[in-house]
Amino acid sequence: MSKKKIDHGYNLQRFLKYLVLAIFFVLMAYPLIWLFYSSVKSVQEIYDSVFALPKKIDLSNFRHIWGSSHFPRYYLNSLIVSISSVFGIVLFSSLTGFIFGRVKFRGSELLYTILIVGMMIPVQVTLIPNFVFLRDLNLFDTYFAMILPYIAFNVPVSVFIMRGFFQQIPKELEDAGYIDGCSMRRIYGNIMMPLSLPALSTLVIFNFFTVWNELIFALTFTNKQQVRTIPVGIMDFVGQFETDYGYIFAALTSASVPLLIVYFFGQKKIIEGLTAGAIKG
């Protein structure tokens, strides 16, 4: 009798668990799925019913935005800006993370603290001076107007991650190098840097997603469509085609699907990368 009662309670609990998971599944997934199938519906079909699945796959929305809009340009710009920024961030923070992780010198703690405080600073407080600075250097409306701030703002958290990684490397490996008479640069280049490749890949992912999706700098420091990245590009695009739902859904899908595909294949590393900066113990 009592056993049965426990089982009953257990089943109810299990049922509730799966119910909650299912509700969250629908909440999280359906808007995205809706976006994807709406992008292959014609405008007429969308107006007829926003729910219905497409009767046939109509790629004309995609042909339009990839064939005769600025969209491919935005994509290219995003690639250029993201790759350059990530390269700079990863290079600089690997070098600096190595120093802060392995070398003690006078003032190293202070310098590190000054850098790490940067993780807390809201970008807004630097927006106006940087706007003036970039404008005065004639860098407004260039790729550099985005790349330079992206590097500056993402280096602190990346140094934090790299330093943590370098600190875990056993000291013996380094000592062996010094006994062989290697210079510090050789120790970094031949021993430490190769060992840090897993951490570097985390950094690449973390920063790539951050930079690829960044809005406020791109919005503030650019005006021309020739240099604008996807987030601002989409804003211009929607402003232009507000009621052409098909085009907009196709643009949003084009902006999201490549990232989602990459995510589904490399999700373990990507989840690790995207949450790396958050865990400070």
Partner: peptide
């Protein structure tokens, strides 16, 4: 994977 997916998509999208 599914619950984390909204984090992947850009805020603008």
């Amino acid at each position: 994977t599914v619950y984390f997916a909204p984090q992947i998509i850009s805020t603008v999208a």
